[in-house]
């Protein structure tokens, strides 16, 4: 049994905390695979974080202890790990390009469409953090889906909300995040 599986079962039994015990393990592992993949693959290769999470799950937990609870705890922790990796990756890129001024993150550089995706991603992450302060559940739902690659209803189930509520929360959070980002951009 791998460490991850052991901890997951401990989490399920209420003996451990997913964030404290599971996150570092999964984070290290995801980062290792991501770097390995990005280093080895051809130039045009890109890595999809959500696919990576699923792959890590299959490797670390596998089909043997594939229960709903295990899956939920794993994805909960892996989502946060993946978010950190992705955002680090984006920030590093921006530091190289813009001389390390993290505050310039909000300035959408229209003349530079190549990095628009990076900017958008960082803005989205900021907006999600903002939402988290106001409504933790909705932010969590968005993260599980966007960074963890979970299906919306599965993410809802993990958070203990019904499919209908998940749909509604998603719709509101999605519109709210967009409005928040556009408001941030309008401020001088």
């Amino acid at each position: 049994m791998s460490d991850v599986t052991r901890i997951i079962e401990a989490v399920a039994a209420g003996q451990a905390s997913a964030t404290d015990d599971l996150l570092p393990l999964i984070y290290e592992d995801l980062k290792r695979i991501a770097n390995l993949k990005l280093a080895n693959e051809s130039v045009n290769h890109t890595l999809q974080p959500t696919a990576l999470v699923h792959e890590a799950y299959m490797r670390l937990v596998g089909s043997k202890s594939d229960t709903w609870e295990n899956r939920a705890h794993f994805f909960g922790a892996a989502t946060e790990a993946m978010r950190r990796i992705l955002i680090d990756h984006a920030r590093r890129k921006k530091r190289i390009k813009r001389g390390g001024d993290a505050k310039k993150v909000y300035l959408v550089d229209i003349s530079d469409p190549e990095h628009q995706d990076t900017d958008e991603l960082l803005m989205l992450d900021e907006a999600i953090s903002e939402l988290e302060l106001l409504d933790k559940q909705k932010a969590e739902l968005v993260k599980l889906r966007f960074f963890g690659g979970m299906k919306l209803h599965d993410a809802g189930k993990l958070l203990g909300i019904s499919s209908r509520s998940a749909d509604r929360y998603w719709a509101y959070a999605r519109a709210w995040l967009q409005r928040h980002i556009s408001e941030q951009n309008q401020e001088p």
Partner: peptide, 30 residues
């Protein structure tokens, strides 16, 4: 504010609906 939300709800090119990927050069693409 609600009207803004409804209008944004119709927007279908929000990054949240896209799949993000990373490249070795550090670029983020969607």
């Amino acid at each position: 504010r609600i009207e803004t939300l409804l209008k944004l709800h119709e927007n279908d090119s929000f990054i949240l609906d896209k799949k993000v990927s990373m490249s070795p050069e550090g670029d983020i693409s969607t």
